[in-house]
């Protein structure tokens, strides 16, 4: 992406986001208030962290279905460490991130070491981590008390919580990693064409391992934010989170077949999903309507992003997107 194009790059998603905000503002007299935006900011961190990780694995041409279960396991361990072992919160939080990192490393090691498809490995990890979360908590929601709530409390006057700023920091760091670091370039290369990457002298295996490990750690951090927001550790946490994270990434233009994506755009996807959920709940939409509208907006957002590219004079890319192809030229196999 050329730096001069960044406004155009983010424009389509920003327009959808603003349109949603204005729409709900028109439908509900109280949507355009600091309380609403505070509540949206408060709920974003977990999904933002998960979606950031998901963007990385999608870029290297993988997928991580275990992200929600790993989050539940990390949260479960956090709860046990805090309540049963009486560890200080900082130590519990580090442990949760560590649990996520280990699960991510295990995913990555199986995928690159044994060349098992990521879909299968992470599907297995999804089940195992969920089972482990139930074992650790004895299937009971643990009440954590006030020790964890500091992170979710709005910081002096801004209305923004520590969790939110933390998630924002991770998004910025991840975008820097992708666009300005060597590892980031290798990630795009691996996802675009792994064979070519290998022939050009770069080993794609550690690159993929790093993507899965970072995603696991992001899920662990997401668990810390989840626990802080709800004051509880819940073994059912994050059920379906992997699909929300994929939706956010795809809304942001990340390709499901690798080689293309941006964390900032994914964050727009997260904002769109969160705004939509908050707005629909605030206008009191019924359950079926919520699902219909959410599904429709996901598809529309992806189409809008594709249209933006056609408007930018690249109709070729549009068809690639719609057909799921991502590399610069059609690949003959």
């Amino acid at each position: 992406m050329h730096k001069a194009n960044w406004i155009r790059e983010y424009l389509a998603l920003a327009v959808i986001l603003v349109a949603l905000v204005l729409l709900f503002g028109a439908l509900s007299g109280r949507f355009l208030t600091p309380a609403t935006f505070g509540a949206i900011a408060n709920r974003i961190p977990t999904l933002a962290l998960a979606a950031t990780g998901m963007t990385l694995v999608l870029i290297v041409g993988g997928i991580d279905l275990s992200i929600g279960s790993v989050l539940a396991l990390a949260g479960a361990v956090l709860g046990v460490a805090l309540v049963d072992w009486h560890w200080p919160f900082a130590a519990c939080a580090s442990l949760a991130v560590g649990v996520g990192l280990v699960a991510g490393l295990a995913n990555g090691a199986l995928i690159v070491g044994l060349t098992v498809p990521p879909f299968i490995v992470t599907l297995g990890m999804m089940e195992m981590a969920r089972g482990a979360a139930y074992l650790v908590t004895h299937s009971q929601t643990k009440y954590l008390g006030t020790a964890v709530e500091g992170l979710a409390r709005p910081l002096g006057g801004t209305g923004l919580s520590g969790s939110f700023l933390l998630a924002l920091l991770v998004v910025v760091l991840a975008q820097w990693l992708l666009s300005s670091s060597v590892l980031g370039r290798w990630m795009f290369a691996t996802g675009s064409n792994e064979t070519a990457t290998r022939y050009s002298g770069i080993d794609p295996r550690p690159v993929k391992l790093a993507a899965y490990a970072l995603t696991g750690a992001a899920a662990g951090l997401g668990a810390v934010c989840y626990a802080a927001r709800l004051g509880a550790s819940d073994p059912n946490a994050g059920a379906g989170l992997e699909l929300s994270a994929i939706a956010a990434a795809v809304i942001g233009g990340t390709s499901l077949l690798g080689g293309r994506g941006s964390v900032i755009n994914t964050f727009f996807g997260v904002l769109i999903i969160a705004t939509l959920e908050a707005g629909l709940a605030q206008v009191g939409a019924s359950e079926p309507v919520k699902r219909l509208v959410t599904g429709a907006v996901i598809v529309l957002a992806v189409l809008a992003d594709a249209w933006r590219q056609r408007a930018a004079g690249n109709s070729f890319l549009l068809w690639q997107r719609l057909l799921g192809r991502t590399t610069g030229r059609p690949v003959k196999t």
Binding site: R30, F31, A35, R43, A278, A281, Q282
Partner: peptide
């Protein structure tokens, strides 16, 4: 939690 947060902003 999300539904409750929205209800609280909608109905002060």
């Amino acid at each position: 939690n999300n539904v409750a947060a929205a209800m609280l902003s909608e109905h002060p």
